[in-house]
Design a binder for these strands. Structure first.
Lengths: 119, 119
DNA sequence: CAAGAGTATCGACACTTGTCGATGAAAGAG
DNA sequence: CTCTTTCATCGACAAGTGTCGATACTCTTG
C-alpha cells in the first residue's frame, strides 16, 4: 500500500447509516418503488377514511387480480396498509404513521438539528 | 355483467396518481430502495458540503469499486447526486432539492390541503 | 510519451421481481 | 349443502437488478 499521489481530502466520513438500518429502510422503500403500488396507495389514500375494498381497486389499476393482490400484500407486509375482512370483502386501510416514518427517513441532516435516531 | 350480490361500497375512487407520474415516482424511489445506495447518500450527506470523493466511499461501504461506481451512477441518474471532476478524483454532491421532492411525494392528502401539484 | 492512480464500463452470473392463468379458500345467498 | 362472489396462493415465465473480476478510460506526474 504505497501511496505516491497525495490524498484528495481528510477522509472523515463517520459511518452514519448502519448496515442493518440501511437494509430495513431499503426494503421499506422497495415497497413503494413500484408504479402499481404507488397508485394503490394513492387510490386508497384518496378514499374517505383512507380505506378501500379490493374490488374497487382492480379495475382502476388496470392489472390482473392476482397482481393487485400481490401488491397489496407487499404493501401490507411493509406496514403501509392493514387488512380487514368485512363480510365477503377485504378492505385495506392506509397507515399514515408508516408513511410519515418513510418521509422522516428522507430528512436531511440540515432538517434534523440534533434529533436522536431510534429505528 | 349481471351482479347478484350488492356492491360493497359507492365506488368513488377518482384516479389520483396517473400512470406516467407513478412510473416516474417509482423509478425515483427505486433509486433509493437499496441498502448500499442509502448508505452512500447517508455518507455523502454527512460530509461537509454534502459532497464526497469516490475514493472515500468505497472502503466504508464495503463493496467493490465497480459496484460503488454503479450505485453512484444510479443515484446521479435519479438526480439525487451531481458529478464533478476535480483533478484525478470524482466528487459526488447531494442535491437536497431532489431529496425534498421525494419527501413531498410522500405527503398524505391530509398534509396538503389544497396544494397544486406540478411534477 | 510512459507510468501510475482513480473511475467508469463491460461481461457474466445468481438472484429477485412483476406479471398472469389456474386453482384454492372463505363467506354469504338460496 | 350447493352455488356464487371475492380474494389469496401457486406455478411459471420474462425481465430487471446487484454483484464483482477484468478491462478501458482519464488525469496528473515525471
Amino acid at each position: 500500500m504505497k501511496t505516491k499521489l497525495p490524498r484528495c481530502c481528510p477522509s472523515v466520513l463517520g459511518t452514519r447509516l448502519k448496515r442493518d438500518d440501511a437494509e430495513e429502510l431499503a426494503s421499506a422503500f422497495k415497497a413503494i418503488a413500484d408504479p402499481g403500488r404507488l397508485r394503490l396507495l394513492s387510490f386508497i389514500a384518496a378514499q374517505p377514511g383512507a380505506e378501500a375494498c379490493v374490488c374497487n381497486l382492480i379495475e382502476p389499476l388496470g392489472l390482473a387480480q392476482p397482481t393487485v393482490s400481490h401488491h397489496l400484500k407487499v404493501l401490507a407486509e411493509a406496514g403501509l396498509l392493514v387488512r380487514e375482512r368485512r363480510a365477503t370483502w377485504m378492505f385495506y386501510r392506509l397507515v399514515p404513521e408508516r408513511v410519515r416514518a418513510l418521509q422522516d427517513a428522507l430528512a436531511l441532516p440540515v432538517d434534523k438539528p440534533a434529533t436522536k435516531r431510534s429505528a
